[in-house]
Amino acid sequence: MQWIEVVVLALIQGLTEFLPVSSSAHLLLVPLFTDWPDQGLVFDIAVHFGSLLAVIFYFRRDLAALIRGWLGSLLGRGINPEARLAWAIIWATIPVGIVGLLIKDVVETSMRSGYFMGYSLIGFGLLLGYADWRYTRKYANDTAVNNADEYHLSKTQIIVIGLFQALALIPGTSRSGITITAALLMGVNREASARFSFLLSIPVIVLAAGLQTVDVMMQPMPIPWFQLLVATALSALSAYICIRLFLAVIRRIGMQPFVFYRIVLGAYLLYSFY
């Protein structure tokens, strides 16, 4: 890969991984404006690892508490809020893990067209817009809802968010977008929705990168380690900045700007691949 490819693709991955706009759709835009070849599985693993490092570093104190609480629950010390959230992340990850194993081949072949992604961007974008509008109309003035955090999710909310997350396997959906959509529909405030979505990304990225690593190990190839290290660092830095900014403004701006952006991007993909 050329260095310009490494920089641009790593930044695109980092900046779009945690926004509700679909990182895969943005990576699909690159061939429309360049003659760059596909970056390959090894590069995908590197930039996803960068995103993983970013979310782990941002939530490092929360994750330490979650791990302590979860281990304590296994040792019979009871369920505290941290243990409860840790179990919520585990339970909400199971559906996407099962569905991913079942339809992995279909997703990677027949669903990865620009035309398909265009419809996904628009359709799931409109659903996100409805969820945000419904939350504003129904819960915006509810103090209890607005003051609640991800530690207070009910079992029903956790199950629904987990089931919705399985839809993220559809290219163009956006994993963060669909989980935030589900949380808003279930009456979770915007900030808690986003934080839970970001925490959910950790096991999902680990599972996805693990499957990709297995595929790479079965196809020996020369690995450009220095380029991959730079790509990982750029992806991690841009993803970390994105997480900080998104959580800082989401309560005020809501989801509608992202909905508008998704519709425009989806329409462009449909036009380009028609």
Rank of each mutant, 00 (worst) to 15 (best):
W3Q: 08
V8W: 06
A10G: 08
I12C: 07
I12E: 10
Q13I: 05
T16F: 04
E17Q: 08
F18D: 00
S23P: 00
S23H: 00
F33D: 09
P37Q: 15
D38F: 11
L41V: 13
L41C: 06
F49R: 05
I56T: 12
Y58F: 15
F59P: 01
R60F: 13
R61K: 15
L71C: 13
L74Q: 11
G76A: 10
G76P: 06
R77T: 06
A83G: 03
R84K: 15
I94V: 15
I94L: 15
P95Y: 08
G100W: 04
L101E: 06
L102Y: 11
T109P: 08
S110G: 06
S113F: 03
F116N: 04
G118M: 06
S120L: 10
I122K: 04
F124P: 01
F124N: 00
Y130C: 07
A131N: 10
W133H: 12
R134L: 13
T136Q: 15
T136K: 11
R137N: 12
N141I: 02
D142W: 08
A144Y: 09
N147W: 07
Y151F: 15
S154H: 09
K155G: 12
I159L: 15
V160Q: 07
F164W: 04
Q165E: 13
L169F: 11
L169R: 02
I170H: 04
G172Y: 02
S176A: 15
I180L: 10
A182L: 13
M186D: 09
G187E: 08
G187M: 03
G187T: 10
E191I: 10
S193F: 01
R195Q: 03
R195M: 03
L199H: 04
L200A: 06
S201T: 07
A209V: 14
Q212Y: 09
M217E: 06
P220K: 04
F226G: 09
L229R: 05
A231C: 08
L234I: 11
A236H: 05
A236D: 03
L237S: 14
A239H: 00
R244E: 12
L245W: 12
Q256W: 14
Q256R: 12
L265Y: 08
G266D: 05
A267L: 14
